[in-house]
Design a protein around this nucleic acid. Structure first.
Lengths: 344, 344
DNA sequence: TTGAAAGCGCTAACAG
DNA sequence: CTGTTAGCGCTTTCAA
């Protein structure tokens, strides 16, 4: 964080007035104005009228830096996710905001780009704004990050996943179970030569958990993954197409490919459609997430749908409840839905 | 903003120490600690070592509320966009962040959901955190919003569009020109019975500008739109499919449909592929945005690509330059690229 | 119902 | 190189 920019001195430019200026215009004390503006404590109707008038003429915009500092209260809830390039996380964010707004809170987004060190720095950065709560994707964090989150002293919800130990609360689904369910489907379909394609499972840890669940069930049936191919993050539709081409050239007799997410799988399906590769006859394809577009393809994608919007809502609800002094679940499993498409 | 939640009193829970505590542990004054931590001013190597040690043992996390209040400086740049449900805006946001991070600044996102009143409230809310700069989508805002933005006293960049008068600076492309270019293409292809499908052009004003440019050129060739159909926001892929079915049932002899964006157009293309409707023989389809997936469909979508990532970068650069005291362009036209696909 | 005093945690400006 | 003094703009607490 090299301070290359000498930030503007806001006080000099900002023409929004202070509480004292409003008070002077209204002929009241600073405190009465404060009470009127927050609707807290008691004041006369006349005081209110004069304050409102003064606010208008002064063009007052409250300074929450000062307010939050003085009251040690905040309305900001930090949301830390790996990327906004993936619609999955933006849907989660929408769910979070829908609940937060109702409660008079606001979500503030920060993006790690799947980088551990960046995550730690962001958690610290976010903490320095003294948020009212924290929602963070994933159950795995560096040790320093975990320690920071523990001493944050505010409600913390870990999101997307429930396979592991939560710092405070967690809301999500079991990714290993999602992998198992897909493997069972592959076995039932009679696929034997199976490929796996993912984006950097050492960073996208939930994709790794799906893979392990998937392999576990395959193993129970005496099967194993014939070829595994990894792409660099970020995940992309064209990447899935290219990866399919690659694994098919390596293993021409592949029956099926399990993609770690729908973006990749959709790329593969589009490639097959364009190239006349029959699904599932020549090769079967499955993904994870249940994106809408996967269900609109000429051949519907087999996948597992994660309840992203409700998941975000539940996470926000946990925060709101805690702030209201109501206890919230330590662990909330949202479950998922298997979607049998036409590609397997 | 009804304060239903009695927010936690952070001071009571937060175990992060204060500058004074660090100073006590280090056996130094508060100011020396402050200087070391900010790398500002001068201090001995010994002082630095002692401070670092004390920070570690106290578990200190700076309080930026206090810091920003005292110094009247902020590192936050507010970014106000209509929605995060549309990948277009998240790509813009990525471009913004890529530049901001380099400069030691951080983008803070707020979402209007295409609502004017919400936009005004957000601008006020954002201003109350005293950001170092503001990036906001669009050139049209309510009057109150414009006034607020003008008195903000910080650099303001209006993004996505250059057809209009900027409050301070603007970065984007000409949507009316994009519409004109597409109309010229339609005319050149010989389409005469033309439909238009959009999402609520009274809220998505840039879609409205594209429509006007489009109609303008059609009129020059003695043509007009045969059928116009609007969907409610938010834009969606399935919506485009449904809308195409609708207009084709109303006007079976349509030659071509101009969709206000790629999401809708992609839905239409997928529907045609699934239903065996030949493009462009039976009906031609075009969109706007140049989404990657549109170029991966079995028939590439004709569209106009908006340079979203670079647009975001440029907007952030304008802010950074202004903060550094360097003058930045009042109006920056990023241009766009016409993509001739196989659907027209 | 209103006001005065004190202080949230930090930094600017100055003095040593 | 280090410390002191005086706030930033607001809210809490207590008194009137």
């Amino acid at each position: 964080m090299d301070e290359e920019v000498r930030n503007t001195r806001l006080a000099k430019n900002l023409k929004v007035g202070t509480l004292d200026e409003v008070a002077a215009h209204a002929g009241l004390s600073r405190m009465t104005v404060s009470r009127v503006l927050r609707g807290h404590g008691s004041f006369s109707a006349d005081a209110k009228r004069r304050v409102m008038e003064a606010v208008e003429t002064v063009g007052y915009v409250p300074n929450r830096l000062a307010g939050a500092l003085a009251s040690a209260r905040s309305t900001q809830v930090a949301v830390i996710i790996p990327t906004i390039g993936n619609i999955v996380f933006t849907e989660v964010m929408s769910g979070i905001n829908s609940v937060l707004v109702e409660a008079g809170l606001q979500g503030v987004l920060a993006v790690t780009e799947y980088d551990d060190e960046r995550e730690r720095a962001l958690v610290e950065g976010v903490l320095s704004w003294r948020p009212a709560g924290i929602i963070i994707a994933g159950l795995e964090h560096g040790n320093n990050t975990r320690r920071l989150l523990k001493r944050a002293g505010v409600p913390v919800v870990e999101l997307m996943d429930v396979d592991g130990e939560a710092i405070d609360m967690c809301v999500g689904l079991s990714h290993s179970e999602a992998g198992r369910v897909m493997a069972a489907h592959f076995v039932a379909r009679g696929f034997r030569r199976i490929g796996f394609i993912a984006c950097d499972i050492n960073r996208d840890l939930r994709a790794g958990k799906r893979l392990r669940g998937f392999e576990e069930v395959l193993a129970q049936h005496g099967l194993e993954i014939a070829i595994r191919h990894e792409l660099p993050l970020p995940t992309s539709v064209p990447g899935g197409a290219a990866a399919l081409v690659h694994v098919l050239s390596q293993c021409p007799d592949l029956d099926a490919v399990y993609f770690s997410n729908d973006d990749l799988a959709i790329g593969a399906v589009l490639h097959c459609l364009s190239s006349g590769i029959a699904m599932p006859e020549r090769v079967a394809i499955a993904g994870f997430n249940g994106l809408v577009i996967g269900q609109l393809l000429p051949r519907r994608l087999t996948t597992v749908r994660s309840p992203r919007f409700p998941m975000g809502q539940q996470a926000a609800r946990c925060i709101v409840q805690r702030l209201a002094g109501i206890e919230a679940p330590k662990r909330f499993d949202t479950g998922f839905e298997f979607l049998t498409g036409q590609t397997t």
